[in-house]
Design a protein around this nucleic acid. Sequence first.
DNA 1: AAAAAAG
Length: 513
Amino acid sequence: MTTFSDLGLSQKVLTAVTDAGYTIPTPIQAGAIPPALQRRDILGIAQTGTGKTASFVLPMLTLLEKGRARARMPRTLILEPTRELAAQVAENFEKYGKNHKLNVALLIGGVSFDEQDRKLERGADVLICTPGRLLDHCERGKLLMTGVEILVIDEADRMLDMGFIPDIERIAKLIPFTRQTLFFSATMPPEIQKLADRFLQNPERVEVSTRSSTATTVTQRLVATHSKDYEKRAILRDLIQKQEELKNAIIFCNRKLDVAELYRSLSRHGFSVGALHGDMDQSSRTKMLAGFKDNAITLLVASDVAARGLDIPDVSHVFNFDVPIHAEDYVHRIGRTGRAGRSGAAFTLVSKRDTKFVDAIEKLIDKKIEWLNGDLSALPAPMESHESSKPERGGRDGKRGGRRNDRDRDYAPRPVHSHKSDTKSDDIPAAVTTVAALEPVIAKAEPVRSERKAETKPQNAGRHSNRPAPQPYPANDDNRDRRNRYRRDQDDGPTPVGFGDDIPAFMLIAGKA
DNA sequence: AAAAAAG
């Protein structure tokens, strides 16, 4: 059997790999590392979760042992489509490069130039970038690309989706023709093949069998719903609480605004929740992701920024709050669970308007997905918003006399505290008109909530009831439009309010994880 | 019907 020591890697690299606990390379690593070490170009066709990152990081480390970086002349360059992916690759260099003294510079948007400039000035052996920020540095004249010996283009198909290809071409033109190029893509549509033909010279093609579209260890279910968000949120809450083995979950929405809204809703309902989307400021993105990885946050509401590539191990559940518009995104999203042969569950909320997207998904994965509680034809009449400010309607009192079905719970009128702040504002200073101005109010309220820790009931995963009510703006969704009007001006998405550096204890799951 | 990335 092939081991890492058979691949031609340097001793320093091997030691770090062994220390990290690995002995057997994955297929993409076994296939790509030896030719990469011989300075061959590589065309790697592999998805995330296949060990792709190490398949370029390890040979790069070995090759970089010869030579030294010069100021403003990086020796190698890695291009990634998202900031999080770039940061993740940088972590890999830290981990496997611990026996090397290499300068690694992470050039991504959303953070200040100063530190990046300093690193470049010092001379970077490895530059890990998102395209926009790299070009920005180049245009500022801080960077000379003529010393780049190795170029890595990662997730090329996603770069294409995101319209980065012109940027990539511009960058590639700045780099000497004699470079070695390592090119990775999960899929090989014709445009990507053409791109590869242009960028690569006589490449070694390494293809690892794509995870057969969706892993068989993942239980997939469709959940019928009407299209109203309050109904979808209620169904989602119920679904989450019914899960017995929920360790952590990513909840995908199609739009950033919906990510922000669902995040607020879930946190108001006392769930341990974070959010991730591209309009959030970078420090919040980083914090949220770190909190989720550390299990400080159980639920992560995310846009498709989190669908691909991010290495979040052990996600037990994926919930699609919205059906993805592009069928491939479904595969990527539910690929966040059931990794490495573990079991996982993926639930997708489906309303009538989503059926054509579901059809496309089923066609792509070549199988029918079962409904959890009957399909759309079995759907009862739309539920009314419990969050409505109107008094109770017939049959919908706390005991729920009227229509009953599996879904019909948790739509009882909210406990008083949800409505209380409706009555306008003991909590909201009259002058406050923007969400930004409200945030400190939330933050201030936070310690109060922490003190209530002793009262929390741990039996529900991620859920904590009897929460006190620091509602800085109405929980009542009839007020949503008003809020959104504020929000639209400056929607940074959710900030991890009140969790600064540590998450209040009551937000952690007590009891079974 | 969207998201991502440069400000």
